[in-house]
Design a protein around this nucleic acid. Structure first.
Length: 173
DNA sequence: GAAGAGTTGTACT
DNA sequence: AGTACAACTCTTC
């Protein structure tokens, strides 16, 4: 058997929108941001989802945690196992570091780079977040510029990130 | 406060 | 292997 690695996916609705997740035996391979429809969510996790089979039960844990998170509950998304085998060491490190950021807290790209190995790889750290395929599971929205401002974040994701931060901050209070 | 230079990692040719 | 690109940060005007 070869080969084709059995991957499964699920798509469900949260308070923030539809979220799709694709995973393997090792954990979640890909997760989408909350979208306006199941179609959009699934489209966001292509082409990985194309090889996966719909298996809601398999992602019951992920679904529960993500749903709770989007509902504003202070759940620990770090409990969701992620599959980073195909990820380069630097990215993996950066994501791990990102996941370790406490809810409601923020860190700079410089901090991420340092955790990932090279303090000067700030831009590389930015790339790691930009290519983050584990939305929500890797809380890249907690990573902001050293000056405290949200650097870049390219586009439509900014409002959502801002909202997530506000939500997490609210949990702290 | 705005503009320019410097560094590192990844993807593509 | 070399080139181009990127969600950065620091220095300087």
């Amino acid at each position: 058997m070869t080969a084709v690695e059995r991957t499964t996916y699920d798509v469900f609705e949260t308070d923030l929108g539809w979220v799709a997740v694709v995973g393997s035996e090792h954990g979640v391979l890909r997760a989408s941001l909350p979208e306006s429809s199941p179609e959009a969510a699934l489209d966001a996790v292509q082409p990985e989802v194309g090889l996966a089979k719909h298996d809601p039960e398999r992602h019951a844990d992920s679904r529960m945690l993500i749903t709770a998170y989007c509902a504003g509950e202070p759940v620990n998304l770090g409990d969701v196992p992620i599959d980073t085998r195909r990820i380069s060491p630097f990215f993996k490190k950066a994501w791990e570091a990102c996941r370790s950021i406490p809810s409601g807290e923020t860190r700079s790209y410089r901090w991420l780079a340092e955790q990932a190995g090279n303090v000067r790889a700030t831009r590389g750290a930015g790339q790691a977040m930009a290519r983050n395929k584990l939305a929500l599971l890797v809380p890249c929205h907690r990573v902001i510029g050293s000056s405290g401002a949200l650097h870049g974040f390219g586009g439509a994701g900014l409002p959502l990130k801002s909202r997530l931060l506000a939500m997490e901050s609210r949990n702290q209070h």
